[in-house]
Amino acid sequence: MEKIPILRMGPFLLVTIQVDLYDRLAENLESDLVQMVSKTGAQGVLIDISAVSIIDSFMGRIIGNIASMSKIMDAETVVVGMQPAVAITLIELGLPLKGVHCALNVERGMELLRSRIALTDGTPDDDADTE
């Protein structure tokens, strides 16, 4: 059985989708990821879809689900590396991926995750020793 690997990187989970997804694979990824968030206490999930050439409504729904599920498990999700043709197609299909944070590449995605976690922490490092 094929499986999409989930890598742990500090407080984040990193998923790089390198194969064409079929439904079962996508559904498994969804449940594996949520379980990994719970097990590791990860604060952020970064999903790299730069190798994905097709996202249909089902796949789009899975991505949305992952983001919502992570959110209520106290983790932020960022989707990075969407191909321009996929973005054009998603919008015409009628699936704007509302509620999913996106970034152009892995580097910017990591930055976004860090800033969002700092934001929700409520204890920014800068203010730590001002008193």
Partner: peptide, 8 residues
């Protein structure tokens, strides 16, 4: 782009 639309 058209390929991606068709395949989707």
């Amino acid at each position: 782009v058209n390929q991606t639309k068709l395949i989707t």
